[in-house]
């Protein structure tokens, strides 16, 4: 009896195996200041000792979009629809895609990159990948502003303002989903790379491959039709990859908001929502499991 009494007094218990799902959201909340300070650190140290500073964030999406426009619209003749310039179309895709790529790249080596801190002091490890996703927002905002500039330019030149204002409410939601997908996948990869390093090589390659099935430089509808016509045999394998890809739906919806064209499918958004939640939860679980033992394996 006495034992039971004293057991309830303990504030924390450190034990070998936690429950399968063992999130301590209260603890993460208690460390919110740390999260904030890490984000601040990232922001402060971002431009230090670079000559062009934030300009780099301009150059990368712009050049990528120009090249996409030349290759996919100039050479490959992808039809992006009538009320949008192909360059703007690609810039939109690249902008939202970059946020995902940044999150995934930044979080996928959470354990390895922070090995020094993690081996010396405890705080909820998940703070680190969350930091990446939040400070990635800054970069996204910069790139998004560039996109808006070009959007306005084209809107005045071609007299075609086509924002779907009712869909605009979806915008923050889309960004959140992108961040969560990057976070979830990144956490899964970072957990697995602690033991099996091979995955590190897959990350940048994998991101590139993912981009091609994520509707970044083509509208989903157009692509699906073309594949069906040109490769009738393998269309049943390729098309589901695009149609059920949550990333493709996010990119497509993002463009729908600004160009009022393309596909807006509620079903696609639902798929995205479910998959994102699934990946994020799975990521949290596996990350949580890894954080207890990774110091011994890394």
């Amino acid at each position: 009896m006495k034992n039971e009494n004293s057991n309830s007094e303990w504030l924390y218990t450190i034990s070998p195996k936690g429950k399968f799902v063992d999130f301590n959201f209260k603890e993460i909340w208690r460390y919110r200041d740390l999260l904030f300070l890490f984000v601040k650190r990232d922001v402060i140290t971002l431009y230090k000792q670079t000559v062009l500073g934030p300009l780099w964030y301009l150059i990368q999406p712009l050049i990528t979009s120009v090249i996409f426009t030349i290759i996919f619209n100039g050479i490959a003749n992808i039809d992006v629809g009538s009320n949008v310039h192909p360059f703007l179309f690609n810039l939109a895709g690249v902008t939202i895609w970059n946020y995902f790529a940044e999150c995934l790249k930044g979080t996928s080596d959470s354990f390895k990159k922070n090995q020094n801190i993690f081996s010396k002091v405890y705080f909820p490890r998940v703070i680190m990948p969350i930091t990446v996703v939040i400070s990635g927002l800054l970069k996204f905002v910069i790139q998004f502003l560039i996109f808006i500039c070009f959007y306005l330019f084209f809107a005045f030149r071609d007299k075609a303002g086509t924002i779907d204002f009712s869909a605009l409410v979806l915008f923050p939601f889309l960004v959140l989903l992108m961040g969560l997908l990057g976070l979830g996948l990144g956490m899964i990869i970072s957990s697995m790379t602690t033991k099996y390093r091979d995955l590190t090589f897959l990350v940048s390659f994998g991101i590139q491959l993912l981009m091609y099935i994520s509707a970044v430089m083509y509208p989903i509808q157009d692509a699906v039709e073309k594949i069906e016509n040109n490769f009738p045999k393998s269309a049943s394998y390729i098309n589901p990859l695009i149609e059920n890809n949550p990333l493709a739906h996010i990119v497509e919806t993002f463009r729908f908001i600004f160009f009022s064209q393309g596909e807006f499918s509620t079903q696609g958004i639902l798929i995205t929502l479910v998959v994102t939640m699934g990946i994020t939860l799975f990521g949290l679980v596996i990350f949580n499991k890894t954080e207890r033992s990774f110091i011994d394996t890394v």
Partner: peptide, 13 residues
């Protein structure tokens, strides 16, 4: 809490 034990428990107040 940097690493977890293989067996056993630590309780703190």
């Amino acid at each position: 809490k940097v690493t977890s034990p293989t067996t056993g428990e630590i309780k703190t107040k």
